[in-house]
Amino acid sequence: MKNVILLLALMSFIQLTFAKEVGNTAYIGKWRIAPEWAGWFAPECREMEMQFTENGTLIRTTGKLVYESKVELINEGFRVKLNEKLLSHNSENTCAGKNAEKIIQHLYHSAYFTVSGDRLFYYRNKNKESLIVFSRI
């Protein structure tokens, strides 16, 4: 448990030190769950991906589910607030077997991220909880 807390504290420091602004396009590209975080997920979910495109969309893949959203990025402190509007999905199930309709509900809530080098720190809520670390692929 102490190692997890230490790791989270270190990552928070790194994020503060190397935070990127919206005007910077370091987030554009394809990201997969970072190897050091993959162990927190079921084996079938360790290949989750996010792809930020140059035309302002985000394509996510989790299991057989692929969905695309239009993104609005807003600087908010050292992080970027990510507002999304669903564009399409393929109606398949996620890696955890959940249906598409249940998963895409998270798009109604803002998420946050910051980029440091080849890592994207993704928060599913404002309180810095539910951190998932992605690595550039």
Rank of each mutant, 00 (worst) to 15 (best):
R46T: 00
I104R: 06
K64N: 05
F134W: 03
K85L: 04
S12A: 13
V80T: 05
R136D: 08
W31K: 03
I132N: 01
A38Q: 10
V66P: 00
N3K: 11
D118L: 05
K102I: 15
S91P: 09
E49C: 05
E101L: 12
E129R: 13
E49S: 12
T57L: 03
F41M: 00
T94G: 15
N83R: 06
Q51Y: 07
G23I: 02
T53R: 03
F41S: 01
Y112I: 03
C45W: 04
S12F: 07
K20H: 07
K128V: 12
S88L: 14
L6T: 10
G63R: 00
K2D: 09
F52N: 04
P35G: 08
G23T: 04
K70L: 04
I137V: 14
Y112Q: 07
W37Y: 10
L8A: 10
S130W: 07
L6K: 09
G23P: 00
R79A: 05
G29I: 09
E44L: 06
N127L: 14
K126Y: 13
S12P: 05
N99K: 15
S69E: 01
K98N: 13
R60K: 04
G97H: 10
V71I: 10
A34P: 00
G23E: 06
Q51W: 09
T114D: 06
I59Y: 03
